[in-house]
Write a protein that binds this DNA or RNA. Structure first.
Lengths: 224, 224
DNA sequence: ACAAATTTAGGACGCTTGACAACTTTTATC
DNA sequence: GATAAAAGTTGTCAAGCGTCCTAAATTTGT
């Protein structure tokens, strides 16, 4: 596994979403993240097939050999990319979790709103379907993606717990699981379904209200 | 566009989900659907890259030349596969729509329950991430996928309308859109996230209750 | 029995791929 | 300014790809 080292500046969502490209990157110490940005761009724009070593190298304005110098294999590149994307989102989520002492209901709404709006408007969203498809066949990608979602879910579980201390751990998890899955589907559709995109602001409102109400009122159904 | 013709038996979800394979398919008149089943299998199991003309032919126990006899190009194969998958799901959905005159709330719950459980338990679910990834780069796939979802959403819009005749057409659409997106995310997660799978029955209960409550109580927020 | 549809068995074309080896240039450090 | 490490260049390799082709054998419908 190629380690990201030295004074490598960790890639932000913005970097990944709108990579600089004009006239080739390269040079100096940021080559690595330039490669990752170019890879992501190719992956999102033209799919995994297009993310070949040669095309990535070309997109960076460098030679193939130099790319293999930084990433020995294509798999290495995928792993590096995954790490970068995950790191970017973790920064995103970390910023969301730590919010001043507003009531949990508001924070739930805030978090969901941020995730829905923030992620939707970033190009990086589109990387997830690709990652899902990849994860279907690559255990490494599978585990990393799963891990990412679990981590993204943690603050949700926490807030649900604050709102409903009467619920069991399992119940909180179930609610958070449903909410995150629901958000995932929503942002997913937003990127792919044209009619959805236009109505997104209202859908977001619906989603958030639905989530808050759900957590507020949830009771396990009586066994019949 | 290669037309599916003659006494070609339309592929069912079951066929696609559990294709026969022992000792190669071939023979007789069902070659075409055998090819499609093998293609789907490769697509789902190993990804789009693996769905090469040569591997599909090999998986069917036939020669490359014979495959190109039925599907002149790889694109033809993709289109044929897309048609088959969509047709299978339309049969599925059609069966769901036609239900006796129970109250709309029950029918909403019923439909959502069917979609969530029925589709989740089928292997074909896993084809959708692949299709999404493909649709990102192929306009043909994109339009077909979008069309399919729109069609699947229609009965939902209808039922929402029955439950809430006071809502505008737009409002009904928004609610149905959110519900279907939410379900998509849920079934999606179910296929990919291990912790999700085990808790799926409860998540389904949560989802359905959440959807019914949402439609029952939704009011547009006042403009502030 | 006959014609059409299907299948086999090959091969060939031009192209892209991931991987790698040998080489040169740049860069940092003493 | 020497020197070693890092970065970048160039060319090659076998393998796989989609597409196209021919010629013969087989199955199928009628």
């Amino acid at each position: 596994m190629t380690e990201i080292k030295g004074n490598f500046r960790s890639i932000t969502v913005a970097d990944l979403a709108f990579p600089p490209r004009e006239g080739g990157y390269a040079k100096g110490h940021e080559t690595r993240e330039a490669i990752l940005a170019a890879s992501l761009n190719l992956l999102v724009e033209e799919g995994y097939q297009a993310m070949s070593m040669r095309r990535v190298a070309a997109a960076c304005g460098m030679k193939l050999g130099n790319l293999t110098y930084h990433f020995a294999s294509r798999e290495d590149l995928v792993r590096g990319l995954l790490d970068a994307v995950i790191r970017a989102y973790e920064i995103e989520f970390a910023a969301i979790v730590h919010m001043p002492g507003t009531p949990p209901e508001e924070r739930l709404a805030e978090i969901c709103g941020l995730i829905l709006e923030d992620i939707r408007t970033k190009k990086t969203t589109r990387v997830f379907p690709e990652l899902w498809a990849l994860s279907n066949h690559d255990p490494f990608v599978f585990e990393r993606v799963q891990e990412t979602y679990a981590r993204a879910r943690a603050p949700l579980v926490e807030i649900v717990g604050e709102m409903r201390p009467d619920l069991s751990e399992d119940q909180r998890h179930d609610l958070a699981l449903f909410i995150s899955a629901s958000m995932e589907g929503t942002t997913m559709f937003a990127g792919y379904e044209k009619p959805f995109e236009a109505r997104m602001p209202m859908i977001e409102t619906i989603a958030i209200k639905s989530f808050v109400d759900l957590v507020r009122n949830w009771e396990d159904p009586e066994p019949n």
